[in-house]
Computed example of a mutant assay.
Amino acid sequence: MGTVQRGRPAAAIDVAFCFMVVGYELTGSALGDVRFGISPLNELVLSLRSWRDPGRYPLHLPWIRRTRPLHEQLDTEVLQALVSPRRWVPDFLTPQPDSPLTRFEDELPRLQRVPASTVRHDLRAAYQGDAGVPAVLRGRQAVQRVVRALEDYWRLCFAPDWPRMRAVLEADVTYRGRQIAQHGLSGMFADLSDRVRMKGDKVEVSSPSGSGWVRRADQGLTLVPTLWTSAACVPVSPAEPPTIIYLARGSATVWESAPPPAPEALAGVLGSHRAALLQRLAAPASSTELAVGLGVTPTAVNQHLRALRAAGLLVAVRHGRSVLYRRSELAEQLLTTARP
């Protein structure tokens, strides 16, 4: 591919983006072209804001505390410079993802092909003028240094935990797809965020103050779950690709590993792991979601799921590429009986 796709200025994700009201008109074919995307690079870059203000990301404090000693091995001068005092980051570092299957290895090379004029423009926007751009981000070799710094940051701090993070993001996409099938687009948007609603063929993202715009989403609308924001956000410019970034469902569980307590009577019959699985399945979930929540491998979870299904305690339903599991009536009866 050529240059990186320009998405929303990441600068506005927690600040400017959320202080406006914008609308996307989904007419004609666009009404059926609401898609989801996941961007590893986007998550990596947005996580840098936790360096500047970790108190804003209490859910990620276990990860922040564990990875902070690794910063000594990184190009911290560059990485810290990528976040402005307002916690904005340059637009070219947050590409709009093409699909939920986007890989970091595919995104990083795109940065090296971003035109110099685009880099300068986005740096000026993030730092409110040339004077505010840090010296380390100036010059022809700056982008190459940024790429190397991000690659090291990914390798040391992100890659070991990315499967866990991606599992939460993918589980959210699966859940949203199920909502669309069951309740339609309007129902899905209503549950996305309290700042998002669908009125007729228009999707609105609102905030306490500011003004906005309405544009036709002729090429469809991309929804991007993230672990590193607290509200639904959209591009500042109506010329940018239609995108809504929102907090992924289940973000609070991303660093949890302890299973919930299971009734002793049921655990004595099924074993603690299988009893915990039944407890988790109060709502339908995939094996990936369950593995993340219980802190075990998907292989181990699948073994228990097969045993529970063979015993008539689970019902499995395929949804797209995922298989969702729910408790059977027999399982509900067992749980009811086992509860004190």
Rank of each mutant, 00 (worst) to 15 (best):
P284H: 06
S39Y: 13
T174C: 11
S207D: 07
A232L: 05
H273V: 04
R148H: 11
A265N: 04
P241N: 04
P54T: 08
D98Q: 12
E170D: 15
A190T: 07
D122M: 09
D75S: 12
P54R: 07
L270D: 06
G295A: 00
Q96M: 13
R309M: 08
Q182A: 15
E329A: 15
L93Q: 03
T102F: 00
A190S: 13
L281V: 11
P163K: 01
G177A: 04
R166K: 14
V4I: 14
W63K: 01
A126T: 15
L79M: 09
W88Q: 14
T299S: 10
R68Q: 13
A232Y: 06
A149F: 07
R68W: 07
V269G: 00
I13L: 12
G23W: 04
V146E: 09
Q303M: 02
L44R: 01
S84D: 04
M1S: 14
S117T: 11
S29E: 14
M20H: 13
V196L: 10
T174V: 13
H183L: 12
Q96A: 11
V323M: 10
R52H: 13
A126F: 00
L150R: 07
F36D: 09
V234S: 11
R120W: 03
D91Q: 15
L101H: 12
R178W: 09
G37K: 08
R318L: 01
T243F: 01
Y127P: 10
L123H: 06
P100F: 03
A276D: 07
G212L: 03
F36W: 14
G23S: 11
A300E: 13
W154F: 12
Y246E: 06
M188E: 13
P54D: 06
H319V: 10
W255P: 08
T299F: 00
R8E: 11
A338S: 14
E170Q: 15
S99N: 08
